[in-house]
Simulated assay, not measured.
Amino acid sequence: MNDMLRESLKVLLKETFEGPSGNGSWYTESKPGSGIFGTLEKVSAEEASIPVQGTTIAAHTDHTVYYLWMANTYMKGDKPELDWSKSWKIFSVDENTWSRFKVELQNEYTTLLENINSFTSLDQQTLNSILGSLAHSAYHLGAIRQMTKAVKIPSQT
Score class of each variant (00 low, 15 high):
residue 72 N to G: 12
residue 36 I to P: 11
residue 125 Q to A: 14
residue 71 A to Q: 05
residue 124 Q to A: 14
residue 115 N to R: 15
residue 153 I to A: 01
residue 51 P to K: 05
residue 90 I to S: 06
residue 16 T to A: 11
residue 45 A to R: 08
residue 143 A to W: 06
residue 28 T to C: 10
residue 151 V to D: 10
residue 59 A to H: 03
residue 144 I to F: 09
residue 125 Q to F: 15
residue 32 P to G: 01
residue 116 I to L: 10
residue 109 Y to N: 06
residue 78 D to Q: 12
residue 18 E to L: 14
residue 37 F to R: 01
residue 149 K to Y: 11
residue 43 V to R: 04
residue 69 W to H: 11
residue 36 I to R: 07
residue 129 S to R: 13
residue 63 H to K: 01
residue 84 W to M: 09
residue 72 N to H: 08
residue 22 G to V: 02
residue 83 D to V: 05
residue 78 D to M: 08
residue 148 T to K: 14
residue 120 T to L: 04
residue 154 P to E: 12
residue 122 L to Q: 08
residue 146 Q to D: 11
residue 122 L to C: 06
residue 73 T to I: 03
residue 43 V to H: 07
residue 22 G to A: 09
residue 91 F to Q: 12
residue 108 E to N: 13
residue 83 D to I: 01
residue 82 L to N: 03
residue 137 S to R: 09
residue 140 H to G: 12
residue 157 T to E: 13
residue 110 T to E: 15
residue 139 Y to K: 11
residue 71 A to W: 02
residue 128 N to W: 11
residue 68 L to N: 07
residue 90 I to F: 07
residue 104 E to P: 05
residue 60 H to P: 09
residue 24 G to I: 05
residue 134 L to S: 02
residue 94 D to G: 15
residue 131 L to C: 09
residue 13 L to C: 02
residue 138 A to I: 06
residue 47 E to Y: 02
residue 38 G to E: 03
residue 34 S to G: 02
residue 66 Y to A: 05
residue 21 S to E: 12
residue 136 H to M: 01
residue 4 M to W: 14
residue 11 V to A: 10
residue 78 D to A: 13
residue 95 E to L: 01
residue 150 A to H: 12
residue 150 A to K: 14
residue 108 E to M: 08
residue 38 G to P: 09
residue 69 W to E: 13
residue 132 G to P: 10
residue 30 S to E: 13
residue 139 Y to S: 05
residue 31 K to C: 08
residue 33 G to M: 04
residue 4 M to A: 12
residue 33 G to W: 04
residue 70 M to Y: 15
residue 107 N to P: 05
residue 132 G to L: 01
residue 131 L to I: 06
residue 141 L to E: 02
residue 134 L to T: 00
residue 40 L to C: 13
residue 86 K to G: 00
residue 77 G to D: 05
residue 11 V to G: 00
residue 122 L to V: 02
residue 93 V to E: 05
residue 96 N to L: 06
residue 27 Y to K: 00
residue 107 N to V: 02
residue 112 L to K: 11
residue 150 A to Q: 13
residue 61 T to H: 08
residue 58 A to H: 03
residue 43 V to Q: 03
residue 27 Y to I: 00
residue 106 Q to V: 00
residue 142 G to D: 07
residue 133 S to R: 07
residue 26 W to Y: 15
residue 72 N to C: 14
residue 16 T to G: 06
residue 43 V to T: 03
